[in-house]
């Protein structure tokens, strides 16, 4: 028996609904239909009145989650595509993210953002917005890369008393599989060494983890060993784990699917340069998507985002300098 990344998200929600009467799910088509990606399939039936269809009103969906959280509930808001969350950005960054700071009132809401590119997704169904949300104080931003993390991090996110942006990657939904659901997990805020290696640290997260691991396997055949760090949460950033890895390898490449300007890669490099400059044997580098909207045609898309081949080229660049 195996479980996919998407099934892990569904099972995590079923577990939460089962064990915590404060939890409910609100989003477009999440009820009887089971969600655009079927992340809530059968849940409306199993938990009557707690898996609620929403109108196409991201602002009101997220605003209402803040109000429900004030009343002690723990809403999970499914945004149909991460791209549409910008319609409700105001409620996230000005209501949810400021509530505790302003009033000492907890705001335990979880926004599930189906993120990232898939073939044919195009400009408005492919975005990675974790860097935008990480910019604002008052939010935790999760970017699980594995089936196990999709499950355990979602449960921990909903259990947390703070607002969480849960960026789940659509590319991983169906083809990423694990043997079973995890029994235990690293806590939120801790990065993981996904692969140990001595030659270069590659810091990454979400779907890019698998491109980086593929690159690492290919380069291993040439005798180059990459150490791959899976950030798991981009906010907070586990700077200690990153710096410790750079201390071992002396070199750093950051790989992310989001756009290059600012963002997670820039933040990681900034911290490593500021806190671990003397550990570096070469200038740190980054690889991001191209600085254009995300293209529709699979051939264009395949070079728009980083992939194993372009990551290997970027690593070679770091190793050469």
């Amino acid at each position: 028996m195996s479980v996919t990344y998407l099934e892990a998200i569904r099972e995590a929600q079923a577990y939460l609904l089962e064990h915590d009467s404060r939890v409910y799910i609100y989003g477009q088509d999440v009820g009887a239909f089971g969600g655009a990606f079927k992340a809530t399939k059968h849940l409306a039936n199993r938990f009557p009145g707690r898996v609620i269809d929403a109108p196409i009103s991201e602002d009101a969906m997220i605003g209402s989650a803040v109000g429900a959280a004030i009343e002690g509930m723990r809403p999970i808001i499914e945004i149909q595509f991460a791209d549409f969350s910008t319609v409700g950005l105001n409620q996230v960054v000005n209501q949810a993210a400021t509530l505790f700071w302003r009033t000492e009132t907890p705001c335990p809401i979880t926004l599930r953002l189906p993120s990232g590119g898939t073939s044919g997704g195009g400009p408005f169904h492919s975005q990675c917005l974790e860097s935008i949300y990480a910019h604002f104080p008052g939010l935790v931003v999760c970017t699980p890369a594995t089936v196990e993390d999709a499950y355990s991090m979602l449960i921990e996110s909903v259990t947390l008393d703070d607002p969480v942006i849960f960026c789940e990657h659509k590319y991983l939904y169906y083809h990423l599989k694990a043997e079973s659901l995890p029994k235990d997990a690293l806590p939120l805020g801790k990065a993981r060494i996904a692969r140990a290696g001595r030659d270069c640290t590659v810091v990454t997260y979400s779907a890019m983890l698998h491109e980086c691991l593929e690159a690492a396997e290919e380069m291993s055949a040439e005798g180059i060993e990459l150490e791959v760090v899976d950030l798991r949460t981009v906010k907070p950033l586990d700077t200690d784990t990153i710096i410790a890895s750079v201390a071992r390898t002396g070199r750093l490449l950051c790989a992310a699917e989001g756009w290059p300007w600012g963002g997670v890669n820039a933040e990681v490099i900034s911290r490593v340069v500021a806190e671990g400059f003397n550990l570096l044997d070469a200038p740190p580098q980054r690889i991001n998507a191209k600085d254009t909207p995300i293209p529709y045609h699979p051939k264009l898309w395949s070079v728009h985002r980083p992939a194993a081949a372009s990551i290997m080229a970027a690593v070679r660049n770091v190793l050469r300098s």
């Binding site: 409910y24 009145g49 707690r50 009103s57 602002d59 009101a60 969906m61 997220i62 605003g63 209402s64 989650a65 803040v66 109000g67 429900a68 959280a69 004030i70 009343e71 002690g72 509930m73 809403p75 105001n90 409620q91 000005n94 209501q95 400021t98 302003r102 009033t103």
Partner: peptide, 25 residues
């Protein structure tokens, strides 16, 4: 007693959510 933010109209859905929660409770 909800604290307003400066963005107008933004409190209405927060009230809605509080009312949905009360109903669920």
């Amino acid at each position: 007693y909800l604290p307003m933010i400066s963005h107008l109209g933004a409190s209405i859905s927060v009230v809605n959510g509080a009312l949905m929660a009360k109903r669920m409770k």
